[in-house]
């Protein structure tokens, strides 16, 4: 390239082109590098622990109470019985997939839709539910309640 015989007008035009080019380049690189950076920096996020679900501290959970949580995108229920025993059951009623609730007085699970009743081991006791609720394994480790998926 023989730049030396260019006149000043052409030079400014070339400078201008270069300027435009670098603006475009930086802008474009920004649009490419920003996703790259965000992708890599997401490593702080963790996949929900794949085999266990953490349900908080055991001591903080009241006796004779329940807590709803999600397991495999479906509602499930954790119950602490009168004796302090922990039970984790699927909360999807086997009749028409409503979410069952813990009934303290009856010491049983009731479905709000048709009043189906399950005992605390998940067995369908009365009402329309055709099948028992799935039971999940519960562990207490260092006073943390863990439910195996």
């Amino acid at each position: 390239m023989s730049e030396s015989n260019m006149d000043s007008g052409k030079k400014t035009r070339r400078d201008f082109l270069n300027y435009i080019f670098s603006v475009g380049l930086f802008g474009w690189l920004g649009s490419v590098l920003y996703p790259l950076y965000s992708f890599v920096s997401s490593s702080k996020l963790k996949i929900d622990d794949i085999s266990y679900i953490n349900l908080g501290v055991n001591n903080e959970m009241e006796i004779n109470s329940s807590k709803l949580f999600k397991i495999n995108k479906k509602p499930a229920i954790l119950i602490k019985t009168k004796d302090g025993e922990l039970k984790a059951l699927s909360a999807v009623c086997t009749h028409l997939q409503c979410t069952v609730q813990f009934n303290k007085e009856e010491n049983a699970l009731r479905c709000p839709c048709h009043f189906g009743k399950y005992d605390l081991s998940g067995k369908n006791v009365s009402g329309p539910p055709p099948n028992p609720l799935t039971q999940y394994e519960v562990f207490v480790k260092n006073d943390i309640i863990l439910v195996r998926k």
Partner: peptide
């Protein structure tokens, strides 16, 4: 919107480089 942003800048680059290329080849 992000795509639009990216495309605008690539059009700018494209235009600049295209002009440049034409000039170089003319020369």
């Amino acid at each position: 919107n992000w795509l639009a942003y990216s495309l605008i800048f690539s059009i700018i680059i494209f235009a600049a480089l295209f002009l440049k290329l034409r000039k170089i080849e003319k020369m």
